[in-house]
């Protein structure tokens, strides 16, 4: 791992992690207060949230402090020497899949997903990719529906 010490640099990944944590902590404190803290005799719904939020800010704060004083790896260095485009493609496929799942149903959305995954990341030859993409989801769908009586989403077209 490349561990450059860049003091007070904005592309320090530690700093950004800490800032996100601090923001989340602040939000949790605010939610806790909104839900009412109650009293120590009868703590309310927001009691534990409030204190957890404070702890989050403390820990996030200490991450930020050490990022500022000791520096840390830059955001870019985290993705050095790796094929960063591949996970990004995969994330894109998964997001597209979750958009398609309900309207199209399980079969119509998972077969294209499988095909994309098999072809985009490390291409598998077509003669292997197509059978796998078609047969595995269909087979699983059949087992679940017929043997285990679990209905997968069938979508607008009612396929599945």
């Amino acid at each position: 791992m490349t561990n450059q010490t860049n003091k007070l640099r904005l592309n320090n990944s530690e700093l950004w992690g800490g800032l996100i944590g601090l923001a989340l902590g602040g939000f949790v404190i605010w939610s806790g207060m909104k839900l009412k803290l109650g009293t120590i005799n009868d703590p309310g719904s927001g009691y534990v949230l409030f204190y957890t939020g404070i702890l989050m800010c403390v820990f996030a704060g200490s991450i930020i402090v050490s990022a500022l004083t000791e520096g840390g790896p830059t955001l870019a260095s985290r993705w050095e020497n790796v094929r960063w485009s591949k996970p990004l493609l995969l994330i894109g496929c998964l997001v597209a899949f979750s958009v398609a799942l309900e309207p199209l149903g399980f079969l119509l959305s998972s077969i294209p997903l499988m095909l994309l995954l098999l072809r985009l990341i490390d291409p598998v030859r077509w003669t292997l990719a197509i059978p796998i993409a078609v047969l595995v989801p269909t087979g699983m769908w059949w087992v679940l529906k017929r043997l285990l009586l679990i209905q997968l989403p069938s979508g607008l077209f009612g396929i599945g």
């Binding site: 998964l94 899949f97 979750s98 799942l101 309900e102 399980f106 998972s110 997903l113 499988m114 995954l117 098999l118 990341i121 490390d122 291409p123 598998v124 292997l128 796998i132 993409a133 595995v136 989801p137 699983m140 679940l144 285990l148 679990i150 209905q151 997968l152 989403p153």
Partner: peptide
Amino acid sequence: PYNILFPLIILFTILGVYCSSNNVFDV
């Protein structure tokens, strides 16, 4: 090979999550 295995892993996690609650939201 991993390029065949990983799409299967993804498919199985989707199915497993869906079957545990019958809920698309969980996916």
